[in-house]
Amino acid sequence: MINVFENPKALTDIASHYCPGCTHGIAHRLVAEAIDALDIEGQTIGVAPVGCAVFAYNYFNCDMVQAPHGRAPAVATGIKRANPDNFVFTYQGDGDLAAIGTAETIHAAARGENITVIFINNAIYGMTGGQMAPTSIPGQVTTTSPYGRKPEIQGFPLRISEMMATIDGVAYAERVALDNVKNVRRAKVAIQKAFEVQRDKKGFSIIELLSTCPTNWGVSPVTALDYVREKMIPYYPLGVYKDITASKKEASE
């Protein structure tokens, strides 16, 4: 008998607490598949953020450390500097990475910390119940921007992947989306590549995943996927923003 579907080994059997239709589950699976593919679970330490993914430490089979809000890249720095041969990844939402932890994110990147950052951008605060995120797009209605995000009042969203591409310590930065099968497959390739970049000690890698939050967006899971396509991708274009492995290949050709 051929086994056509199984859970990645790097995921535990614990049922996740994520809402129906939330793409965190897909993102977790993709990270676990990358860990399995490279057979590095025994050498990997994950860092869980504060936010919806705080319980990530329950779901991955590798060692896990839970960090204060926004500090995951600093915690990961400490872990990685203590044991440089381990694989270290952080799994952070937009509030964690792009608001309260902006400094930690930028400076870990600038130092070229040899870690992998999985950045879940769903343009909203999930765990606290739908407040405006640093990545909420103009016009987006949240509980703290009930009349829609107005740039003249709440300012503009941050485009993290674009910003990361300008930092010398960043080896790989790509934005993907989890809205359809094709994009999920692309995300899988990107995440595995990020871990490979870490394996090859090239420096900081970050994969931004455009994700959904049907619960706090107040829409059905299917409509949420449409929202990613119609509203988010135009504001946050997909693609590889930086890849030092590619530029080296080109240089040698």
Partner: peptide, 8 residues
């Protein structure tokens, strides 16, 4: 927080 990580 780096201390937290290294200690962990």
């Amino acid at each position: 927080n780096m201390v937290l990580g290294a200690s962990a």
